[in-house]
Amino acid sequence: MSNEKHHIVPYHVYVVILGALLILTFASIGITSIELGSLTVAAALFFAVIKTYLVLIYFMHLKYDKPYIGIMVGAVFLLFIVVIIITFLDYLYR
């Protein structure tokens, strides 16, 4: 198994992704400084999710790995979301 050929990611891909991440960071700073009420949290989280996706797919190589690792990662995030929703069934309706 040690001789499996790995995909070598070109350096410029990482630079482009970093650029995107930085833009998203400043965009989230910008959008949260506008008064959007309850949408502020949603906007900040939305940008955070996109950033997470980019880091997972490119920096953490999920794009180039066997698909089952990506499926596991997705499942873990999904489980966490389900847990938080169920917890909030208590707090939202208390």
Binding site: S28, S33, E35, T40, A44, F47, A48, T52, V55, F59
Partner: peptide
């Protein structure tokens, strides 16, 4: 890095 991506907006960007 990933964890910080969430910590940053949740603590610093509540305006």
């Amino acid at each position: 890095d990933l964890i910080w991506i969430f910590l940053f907006p949740l603590f610093y960007l509540i305006h």
